[in-house]
Amino acid sequence: MKTGMQRPAPPECRQACDRLQDYLDQTLPKRESLAVFLHMRECGGCRAQLEMLQALYAKLGDLPPLEAPADFDARILAAVPYEAYRAMAPLRSPRVPILLVHESLPAWLRSRSVRLVGLVAATAALAAAASGAAAGTAAWTVAGVGCLPELSVRLQNLTRRVYVATVHRSIPR
């Protein structure tokens, strides 16, 4: 006799239907996925629900690709102010403490030739000390002074990179 009331679904059907989307998304753990698979083989009602969802997934993934209008790029490229952007490059660079700005080190110290000569002198001094041709203290002093330009520049770069990475992290909304 029909009572007009639907009989509640068995617990295993409710459980399987709750997991159907995860099952299709393949985000269920293997054991649970297998349980859903086995239940689908036995239960026609749940299988029908699965097939409906599968069809929906397939259709949603099949929405036809849309193409932008022909003049789309031209309008944007004409609207983007490259010249102003380039002119404002110094203002856009991330703000860092003054000691981390390149220009805080003297220009001569930053120049490639000074750094190279310093490194060569340091290497020569260490080599002379190792072969006994020069006094140890003097050689170490020359080596220290020689490495100073390169080390200063590298240390500043490294500190700035760490500062920018930690302080300037933002993703605009």
Partner: peptide, 9 residues
Amino acid sequence: LGRYRNAIY
């Protein structure tokens, strides 16, 4: 722009 034009549109 070419890479993302159609996706964003």
